[in-house]
């Protein structure tokens, strides 16, 4: 489905030692050409931008770098980004677990449509994700006049940023857990019930240990997007400095003011977050592969 590829945790097949064989292997120079081309593409489009973030951030020295991060506007942007992640990620986590439970443990009509609906936010442009909340809550929107009369601010305020973030990160946990729990079936849960476990105990002691790594994986990806979302948040935020500026929006403002060193300093924090995300993701994949191969051997 659009926007996401299957990232289900699975054991990667282990390639055993390969002997060079002219009929089933490429000649050495073809191999070098393929590796070289692949790595050139990787370095030019991926490594270079990543490296440039850190080089540009420290171009004017450590003092300028730290000053940019200690700036009150930067600190309030960091705080807003953390608040948004702390609220939106747990909500989508609870949703993801509930949706995966309903979809994988029971049969009901319309299941495939429901899964497609859950994936919808991935195929909507972030800008449109922001637009829909402006249409609902904006001054001319559905509830706009009511909110205006009662002095409740949604758009150009934190609630709007939260809603837009929850929308764009909506599918992450669910789409990680659905294939995983589908593959694990429901025999273990049924056995636990027969042995007298109560509903919550079944989840806590039978299901959760089985899906823990998948949950972590989904949460980490969800968190990265929640902290880094730019387009959707940009539409609903109103760009009020020190109030409705998240870290990515703060990067934009600094950049547009030609304050490049500060822009890249804040950007480098987000890049570190991305690298940490990939590190945890790799660790989780490695862990899941290990569990899988142990299961096969045992």
């Amino acid at each position: 489905m659009a926007g996401g590829i299957s990232t289900a945790l699975g054991a990667k097949s282990v390639r055993s030692g390969q002997k060079v064989n002219g009929a089933t292997q490429e000649s050495p120079w073809v191999r070098r050409l393929i590796i070289g081309t692949g790595l050139f593409y990787f370095a030019l489009f991926l490594l270079l931008p990543l490296g440039s973030v850190f080089v540009e951030a420290f171009r004017k020295g450590l003092d300028v770098y730290l000053a940019a991060l200690m700036d009150p506007d930067a600190l309030s942007a960091i705080k807003l980004t953390l608040i948004v992640a702390v609220i939106s990620v747990p909500l989508n986590l609870v949703f993801g677990v509930a949706a995966a439970w309903a979809i994988t443990k029971f049969n009901f009509p319309g299941k495939r449509i429901l899964i497609t609906m859950i994936d919808l936010p991935f195929s909507v442009s972030p800008v449109i994700a922001g637009l829909i909340f402006v249409l609902v809550f904006g001054a001319q929107g559905w509830f706009g006049s009511w909110f205006l009369d009662n002095d409740v601010k949604i758009i150009f305020a934190i609630p709007g940023i939260l809603l837009a973030t929850i929308f764009v990160t909506f599918p992450f946990v669910a789409r990680e857990l659905i294939p995983l729990m589908e593959a694990q079936g429901k025999e273990e849960e049924e056995a636990a019930i027969v042995l007298g476990a109560r509903g919550w105990q079944v989840f806590r002691f039978v299901t959760l240990p089985n899906i823990l790594w998948g949950v972590i994986y989904g949460v980490v990806l969800c968190n990265a997007r929640a902290m880094g979302e730019f387009g959707a948040v940009s539409v609903v935020s109103g760009h009020i400095r020190g109030e409705t500026n998240s870290m990515p929006l703060h990067v934009e403002i600094l950049y547009n003011e030609y304050n490049f060193a500060a822009a890249f300093a804040v950007a480098s924090l987000l890049a570190i977050l991305a690298l940490l995300t990939l590190l945890i993701k790799t660790f989780v994949e490695w862990k899941a592969a290990k569990v899988n191969s142990e299961l096969k051997e045992g």
């Binding site: 991926l46 931008p49 440039s52 973030v53 902290m227 979302e229 990067v251 993701k281 790799t282």
Partner: peptide
């Protein structure tokens, strides 16, 4: 390392990618 970093565009905020590419 290459295999891990391939997913970077999924994890790196788009605004960061935007200013980095412009700097290049």
């Amino acid at each position: 390392i290459v295999d891990t970093l391939v997913d970077l565009p999924f994890a790196l905020p788009t605004a960061v990618a935007g200013i980095a590419l412009t700097a290049i």
